[in-house]
Design a protein around this nucleic acid. Structure first.
Lengths: 167, 167
DNA sequence: AACCATAAGTTCTATTTTAGAACTGTCAAT
DNA sequence: ATTGACAGTTCTAAAATAGAACTTATGGTT
């Protein structure tokens, strides 16, 4: 499968993976949330090759996740800053960090701690239902095809116990 | 940077990316959450090459995200099912799907809808603070080095406005 | 004027990863 | 004896990544 095909899939996960599902994009975005904005700073803090960094930044701008803002003329130089679309990736970043905190830390403990400015406490992120506010788990959720779905594949129908017409 | 180096980074995001940060792992996990369990079913529903599928399943088992369970003897065959560590990836999957729902849908609308069994409503996932229950955003959170941190890099110190000793 | 430094890339070759298809081994059913 | 299901493995070609050097534009130093 090519990257472009991923964008076209009738699946919100696949389309998001087309944007952030490679080795470097999430690490670049981590730096953005840590207030890194410039090419050489990304390069220094990540150790990514300049070639790939240029490529990934271009991709993130193309998808509207980052925006290039000029910070000086002569020579013209730009900073890369998160758009609203990019800021909206925060729950993804935080849930990834949280999973790593729970399942991938060594004996030294967490590399980073998070404090909620509003309440002042150190916290973990919790995912809840927008309607009732209760925490979510895979087993507590039913999945339904939406208007953008295509016919479910036989293999999914079997797995979900659905009946499908032949043909 | 090599994949193995990513596991060793003092960063929960990098360590999680070592597990799920490639083109296929998240798509395989999506299938797991949709109750797909067997090699040929993964292959048929994803179109992934058999080579890569075998490789990724092996990796996910090695990381303790999936477990191989025998479902028949003679010939011995296994199913791949999510461990608790794997089930804990649900918030990551859901936040990725939600971002795609908001930012990557076409005119036809969402490919999938989610219903909360507990309250009966169609819902979106919301990320809240474990301490006060209020929704989280990047700007509402302070980041602190934890016990597993290593000395912050000059570039991060600059970005965060911290003072660092020379040397 | 010549030299150095900064910033943001681009270009090059070598290595690694992935795609795509074919092949292998085990067993059951016909 | 042949066919088909299942779970991989093996092969070659194509694509992506690593690592280093090079480019362009400008400003400051000697």
């Amino acid at each position: 499968m090519k990257w472009d095909a991923l964008e076209e899939e009738p699946c919100s996960l696949a389309r998001t993976v087309a944007v952030i599902g490679d080795r470097w994009s999430l690490l670049i975005l981590r730096e953005c949330f840590l207030r890194i904005r410039r090419f050489d700073d990304f390069q220094a803090s990540l150790g990514i090759t300049r070639h790939l960094l240029a490529d990934r930044l271009k991709k993130l701008v193309r998808f509207g996740v980052l925006r290039k803002i000029p910070y000086q003329e002569a020579p013209k130089r730009y900073e890369y800053i998160l758009t609203q679309k990019g800021l909206d990736l925060y729950p993804i970043i935080m849930s990834i960090v949280h999973w790593g905190n729970i399942h991938m830390v060594d004996s030294r403990g967490r590399p980073m701690l998070h404090q909620h400015k509003a309440c002042g406490h150190m916290f973990d992120p919790v995912m809840v239902c927008s309607e009732c506010g209760e925490p979510l788990s895979a087993k507590g959720v039913h999945v339904h095809p939406g208007p953008g779905a295509r016919r479910s594949s036989p293999v999914h129908a079997k797995a979900l116990g659905t009946k499908v017409k032949a043909g």
